Simulated scan of single mutants.
Amino acid sequence: MPRTNVSVAQITRAGIAPPDETNGDSANNHVVSNNGRVVLLIRNSGTTVARTVTFRFPVLIDGQSVIPKAVSIPTSASRYFGPFPVDTYGARLQVDVDNAELKLTAFGI
């Protein structure tokens, strides 16, 4: 199945209301439109175990895939990630989650 899209909320000087979170989809994972100025807020809504988010690199080096970057998010914690350079992460940022307890929000800056 295709990856679940995470909409990007553009931050403006006039301000924006907090956008809705996207529930983690560990079966299909996620994709975010990336122009190099995207920041992700990822929240672990769980209270018993740390969860892992993984950022994939769509590039090959000498025909070999680059090992994805995995980051652990502690229980009941939130982390901001980004920005993601397009030449490294691609125009379609691929984000994998290990559980639906991870909640994703994307912001354009």
Rank of each mutant, 00 (worst) to 15 (best):
P2I: 06
N5F: 08
N5C: 10
A9G: 07
Q10R: 12
Q10N: 14
I11S: 13
I11M: 13
I11D: 12
T12F: 11
R13Q: 13
A14G: 15
G15Y: 11
G15A: 08
G15S: 09
G15P: 04
A17L: 13
A17D: 12
P18R: 11
P18I: 10
P19D: 12
P19K: 10
P19G: 07
P19W: 08
D20I: 01
E21F: 11
E21V: 03
N23T: 15
D25Y: 12
S26N: 15
S26E: 15
H30R: 05
H30S: 08
H30C: 07
S33R: 10
N34W: 06
N35G: 15
V39H: 01
L40F: 05
L41T: 07
I42D: 02
R43E: 13
N44P: 03
N44S: 11
T48S: 15
T48R: 08
V49C: 03
R51K: 14
R51E: 12
R51L: 02
T54W: 09
F55E: 00
R56F: 02
R56V: 08
F57L: 02
P58L: 09
V59A: 11
I61K: 07
I61M: 10
D62W: 04
G63I: 02
Q64R: 11
V66D: 08
I67L: 12
P68F: 13
K69V: 01
K69M: 09
S72C: 03
S72G: 10
P74G: 15
P74V: 09
T75F: 03
T75L: 12
T75D: 07
S76R: 11
G82E: 00
P83A: 05
P83R: 04
F84C: 02
F84Q: 04
P85N: 10
P85Y: 11
V86T: 14
D87Q: 06
T88N: 03
Y89A: 02
G90Y: 02
G90V: 05
A91L: 10
A91Y: 02
L93W: 04
Q94P: 00
D96F: 08
D96R: 05
D98I: 08
D98V: 06
A100K: 10
A100R: 10
E101G: 07
L102N: 07
L104E: 05
L104G: 01
L104M: 09
L104F: 07
A106F: 06
A106G: 09
A106R: 03
F107K: 07
G108I: 01
G108F: 03
G108W: 01
G108K: 04
I109Q: 05
